[in-house]
Amino acid sequence: MEVRPIWGLLRMLLRSVLPRQWHLVVCAGPEERSSAAAEVVAGVGVDVASADCLRLLVPTDRFSAEREKKVDDTLARLRAAMPGRLQVREMELFGTIEPLDEIVTGWVSAGRQHILLDVSTMPKKIFFPLLRLAIRSRAFATLIAIYSRPQKYAEQPLAEDPDPPLPLPLFTPAQAPPHATGGIVALGLEVLGIEDLLADGGGPNSIHVLFPIPTNPDESSRTWMFMQRLYSAAPNRFTPPRHLSPLDYGEAYSYIRSLTDSFQGHWWLAPFGPKPVSVAMAVAAIQHDWPAYYSQPTVYNPAYSVGVGREGRDLAVYGYLLVSQGQLQA
């Protein structure tokens, strides 16, 4: 039986690991699922000694008022779930990474060993570097990433006005990067800007695509459409897609291992698409110093998702055991 990273419903995962004192990290977004992880954790009754809550500051746009109100509501729910333990830290979404470094350093000096990191409503621009700082520090015995699936997506677009695809913070290439062995793109319902990268003559010769299994025809159509367009733009560069579950961090990581022949060479990653898959790409990139590119939206619609999904009687809140007993589970 092969070894696979452990993941599953957070409620069950927390009950399946040795009891310990946890430190929870969340991001206060405008969506209802921003507080789902904290509520599940509180419900399970594990010992959460402290909690950091990031509140992201973004430039004013036409959604600001509505978004701020919803973020306030999230904070209220978070405070109710973590009474007396929640520390709110404001951070510029488009600022430097210093605050994240300070946060991680703070955990280390406060002796926090076991981290629960909720990435559900944390932009990739934030959780990618945060993961890197945390994992590279080697200071934590346990690190569980958490992802909450929404009940459904609203009709409006999530976000607008993306930057062109640029390296994520702390995932920039070296000055004269080695020739890329290949690329891995995780598709989502938006893959903005990859064609631009290709048009400028950039990107590797051979690009593998990770295709999340859709759960409805609309998602299926859109994702295939993106695949077809990428393929059409550069038929000699894209290999037929690899399919995987949008929630299966372990499978994504396993694919990356096999695509790269056990992490040989220098790979170029573009983690669009589902967050659990992105987490797998982040871990691979952290271990092997690979760059990761992403088109960061600059305006977020506060009404983009509704509720929290369910899995049977449970909330669809999943935990991914990334680090256990100080070892990266990969």
């Binding site: 677009p157 993306p162 938006e190 159509s221 698409g273 589902p274």
Partner: peptide, 16 residues
């Protein structure tokens, strides 16, 4: 009052 196509076009940017 959105047409179907427009609705689909707009459900573009999902970060999951």
């Amino acid at each position: 009052d959105r047409s179907e196509d427009e609705r689909r076009e707009r459900s573009q940017l999902r970060l999951f």
